[in-house]
Simulated assay, not measured.
Amino acid sequence: MAPSTPLPTARRRRLGAELRRLRERADLSATEAGARFGITQSRISNIEAGRYGVSAERVRALARTYDCSDESLISALAAMAGERKRGWWEEYREVLPGGLLDLAEAEHHATALRVAQAITVPGLLQTPEHARAVFREFVPALMPHEVEYRVSHRVKRQEILFRTTPPPYTAIIHEAALRMQFGGSGTASAQLAHLLAMSERDNITIVVIPFDGTSFPISGHGVDYFHGPVDQLDTVQLDAAHGSQLIDTAASLGRYRLMLDRMENVALNASNSRDLMHRIAKST
């Protein structure tokens, strides 16, 4: 039996999608592009779907074929093509939904991160006990070993915040999330203490939207915004009950940037947010 082909990573799918966008902007069909480049239409389609890998040199050649003159974008795409090693998240491929692996991959490659949560503390700032309590509330219920896999994966994701040169991380949290008692008062108190400690790190900014805020421009689901090396390669991840979803169209990226800007504008500043967290911790 022939070995199975590894599933394309989110990174490879994104590279293929960007190459497709360049082709479409050049007003070329896959057949026309293949003819110009000397390969078949099916090869072009498979590259764009992320099913076939592509070298950095071929990415640059395709960009020239598509008359792309944005050297920053071309260099960023070529760098994506040059990546060969699969990340640590692949060890979870058989035990966790693919969306969680895509999330870890997007976080790993982000140059900066901005997240917003209304009901729960952002995953990268959760203690293991808080994360475990949240996972135990899933519907349908997770098996105990599934909970532990998810906790382990979440803790592993948090390592990006402790790199030698960690990416800037901004968390916008509604006061409601700070007052939730996942796991009971002891777990909640430990979670607040952890948030306060993390807020003192140079690369982390935590701001809180208080209950008495004037507005709250979000629909309720969690939003993770990952900045890429160029704006065109930014990515949004939405965390909803039906699962996570990665979004990368220009219109959607602009919409979520505006939403997060508005949320930061109505949030307390970092110092006042810490004061509020201290007050909540004392009352927990």
Rank of each mutant, 00 (worst) to 15 (best):
T65I: 09
S69H: 14
S69E: 13
D70W: 07
E71F: 01
S72G: 10
L73P: 08
L73H: 05
L73V: 09
L73D: 10
I74N: 07
L77D: 11
L77E: 10
A78I: 10
A79K: 12
A79V: 04
M80T: 06
A81V: 06
A81E: 09
A81K: 01
A81D: 10
G82F: 00
E83W: 08
E83F: 00
E83N: 07
R84Q: 14
R84N: 13
R84I: 04
G87Y: 05
W88R: 07
W88Y: 13
W89K: 02
E90H: 12
E91I: 06
Y92F: 15
Y92K: 02
R93D: 08
R93G: 00
L96I: 13
P97H: 04
G99L: 02
L101Q: 11
D102I: 05
L103Q: 11
L103W: 14
L103G: 02
L103H: 15
A104N: 02
A104T: 03
A104W: 02
A106D: 13
A106R: 14
A106M: 15
E107S: 08
A110F: 03
A110E: 04
A110R: 01
A112W: 09
L113S: 12
V115Y: 00
A116T: 11
Q117L: 03
A118S: 15
I119G: 03
I119V: 15
T120Q: 12
T120N: 13
V121I: 15
P122M: 05
G123F: 03
G123S: 10
L124N: 02
Q126K: 04
H130G: 00
A131N: 01
R132P: 01
A133Y: 10
V134C: 15
F135T: 07
F135H: 08
F135D: 02
R136F: 01
R136I: 00
E137S: 14
F138D: 12
V139D: 11
V139H: 10
A141R: 15
M143L: 15
P144I: 11
P144K: 07
P144S: 09
H145S: 12
E146L: 08
E146T: 09
E146A: 14
V147S: 03
R150T: 09
V151W: 06
V151I: 05
S152Q: 14
S152A: 14
S152C: 03
S152K: 11
H153A: 14
H153Q: 12
V155R: 08
V155K: 02
R157I: 04
R157M: 13
Q158H: 02
Q158F: 04
E159N: 06
F162Y: 11
R163K: 09
T164K: 14
T164N: 13
P166Q: 09
P167W: 06
